[in-house]
Design a protein around this nucleic acid. Sequence first.
DNA 1: CCTGTATGAGACAGACCTGTCTGTCGCACA
DNA 2: TGTGCGACAGACAGGTCTGTCTCATACAGG
Lengths: 193, 193
Amino acid sequence: MATTKIRPAARERVLATAYQLFCQHGIRAVGVDTIIEQSGVAKMTLYRHFASKDDLVLAVLDRREELWTQQWLQAEVSRRAERPADQLLAIFDVFDGWFRRRTFEGCLFINALIEIDDRKHPIHRKCRDQLANIRSFVASLAGDAGVVDPVAFARQWHILMKGSIVSAAEGDVDAALRAQEMGRLLLASLDIT
Amino acid sequence: MATTKIRPAARERVLATAYQLFCQHGIRAVGVDTIIEQSGVAKMTLYRHFASKDDLVLAVLDRREELWTQQWLQAEVSRRAERPADQLLAIFDVFDGWFRRRTFEGCLFINALIEIDDRKHPIHRKCRDQLANIRSFVASLAGDAGVVDPVAFARQWHILMKGSIVSAAEGDVDAALRAQEMGRLLLASLDIT
DNA sequence: CCTGTATGAGACAGACCTGTCTGTCGCACA
DNA sequence: TGTGCGACAGACAGGTCTGTCTCATACAGG
């Protein structure tokens, strides 16, 4: 048996701590020593489970997609609305709650993409991939809603999403509602009701 | 006399080099040693003109507002269109050229804001101020165009601007046109022609 | 009980970071 | 010609970063 202890396995503690710290403060701002300390793990234990800090960052990005994109955003959107067009708009209702949290941390994919500017770096590439996955989700909703060119639509919708996230990071707690209003205009212009 | 040399004064060389490097790679990614080396200046010369690296960053942000916001964005917008509503839309024509440059570097204000996440840090605050100045410019155009609530309008317009910039950083060279289309819808919904 | 394995604690190396200090040089001006 | 100041070069201090290594310990399975 792997571990029947009460405290989670070491790898899991490292990953959970890194997830929280990277999301909150960014990648470069958080050193491995801080992760070590806050997860109560030995340095060698971290490096036994992850080849390098970059490797840990990649694992955190995967977890972010699981927890944020899939289990939170997509799940909440499905829960809040039935019709695809309403689900598209519901994205901004979900964002609205997010922006008003005291712990609002921004989008790790955007933040890491900007922080690691080298386009060939694995972290940069993974962020791009995961942002593309979010667009795929939007495009699939748009297709179901009857949008003629769901891929182009998703790129527009994503501009509203990312713009509102940056505005929220800047301090505008109403950013989701402002973006939603423009989303309604876009849908109306395509005769999607 | 200050300096009649051919090469610009030391302070200017430091500032120009730091401007280019910070815009291209970010703040944390560029060390003072790199700035020293590329500007051909002695370390003590840098620290004679700037109290600290943070102080240099603040000076670079001021220069960014001069060169990017005022002398480039605002000037180009004025040059390209006469009527306020057209000037609002022209923002995205200017962005379109920017996004297609091989040297597209993103928005230093957004990047630094995200990189320095402490809301009380002077760099973070200055970025917020300078983004607010951009909104003031948009709000002034909107007021001239007859928009009823120019401040709220500017926040929406700015969401389109920031969203398109992040999308361009992600690799979408058509992001400005996509945002412009939504801008037209927003103006039309307010009966601004 | 004994052994292997994962872990905790912490020292350590080597690189890089910001910021300080000293000494020398070159140029403008008197 | 001399003087003074700004700038260049580079060593240095003190801290932080990633990543490696050693050693002691706790625990599970045979």
